[in-house]
Design a protein around this nucleic acid. Sequence first.
DNA 1: TGCATATTCATTGTCGACAAAAAATATGCA
DNA 2: TGCATATTTTTTGTCGACAATGAATATGCA
Lengths: 234, 234
Amino acid sequence: MEDKDNSPPTERKRGSGVKRVYDVLRDEILELALPPGTPVDEVQLAERFGMSRTPIREALVRLAGEGLVETLPNRSTMVSNIDFLNLNTFFDAITLMYRVTTRLAAQKHSAADLDRIRDLQEKYAQTVASQDALGMIAANREFHAAIAKAGRNPYYHSLMIRLLDDGRRLLRLYYQSFDDRLPERYVDEHAQIIDAIARGDVEAADRLARVHADQIVAQIQRLLATDARQHPAL
Amino acid sequence: MEDKDNSPPTERKRGSGVKRVYDVLRDEILELALPPGTPVDEVQLAERFGMSRTPIREALVRLAGEGLVETLPNRSTMVSNIDFLNLNTFFDAITLMYRVTTRLAAQKHSAADLDRIRDLQEKYAQTVASQDALGMIAANREFHAAIAKAGRNPYYHSLMIRLLDDGRRLLRLYYQSFDDRLPERYVDEHAQIIDAIARGDVEAADRLARVHADQIVAQIQRLLATDARQHPAL
DNA sequence: TGCATATTCATTGTCGACAAAAAATATGCA
DNA sequence: TGCATATTTTTTGTCGACAATGAATATGCA
């Protein structure tokens, strides 16, 4: 078997290389296919993607900029750790951003925004119905990202994306060991949030977002406590 | 004159190249030495810094990640524009972050944090006393960045940095055309904020931060209005 | 002259190669 | 055998070169 790869020399358009590597790696990091601490070898990636080290490097620099990867000088870069010691800062920030972005969405959303949000809620409901934990995590991210976008404040939006991505890694970490029943109540809470946004009811949006955030934080903390009992070494 | 550059081949340590270019360019962008819209040529920079295009490129990718520079595919990258149409999103976000970070600083600061904050307040007061508008802008940024750091929430801290940097460009834009008297009242407001933080008085910290933020927003809006009268074309 | 097309030019995206740095391994001595 | 030092190996940081892309310019035709 001399030809292990019969694909043609893989012509790709000029600017597409970096984006592809970036997208794939980003996904693999968020899905924990590359767990925290995994060393990332440039030549290895270069072989895998069939390109030179230069575009790989650029993708890694971008990922480092978002904190998904850490680069120690002259030594290998590795997938960033999840910081369990400061999870409260995460909870604090995501609660605030849930509220702020949902409030703003109630004020500034367009009809198109609402359509998209409803679509994503549909997808979310499907993943919950089919007990697809991984799909649910991703769909939940998309749902709240769309709300943040409807709020039309790029500062809030980008922070929200970052928080949601960190949260995605965190949830992924627990749902691969514990598959409890998926919380169907969230579907209903999402529906209520959509209603408040559609009505332009800012205060209701704020209140619902707050409750929703508290629920999620509480759930993660429960998972954490359970996990701590099973892995007391941590 | 055959030798236009008598400096030795400029030996530099291995990892230092990118950082230098990044720091210098970042500064020049924030100081408006490179005004928004300036095209950034890679070979030109390579000559200027006496190195190959590779490290230049990496620095530019990092700057693009922070939104300080925009890269259009296959065509030159340029210094990002200041978005005048959506300044309200900036005002909204910076007001919120002033409040949140100051509140947190009141709760979580250490003695060392407080020392540093007082040092920076000292520097700020000096720049105001000497009517050094540019120095004041930079010192104000450092002051509030230190408060954000004392709050010990990396999510808030990084957003605050981004906002302060954008604000620095914005203020720089106006203070190069208008040198009104520098607002000495801010020195006093800063002092009050420090007191609230030192006392751990969260509510006072919040209230003062809010007032302070409103003041600054109002001042920028005044400058904007004045400018709009002078440049009605915009 | 005015416009459509072809050609040249400037600048980026990607490549393969080499040197520097740190880690991993081997060597020598007690 | 155990430790300090030398050597090899691995992996990154930087370089110069080349091709692709889009803009600028030149060319041809009405």
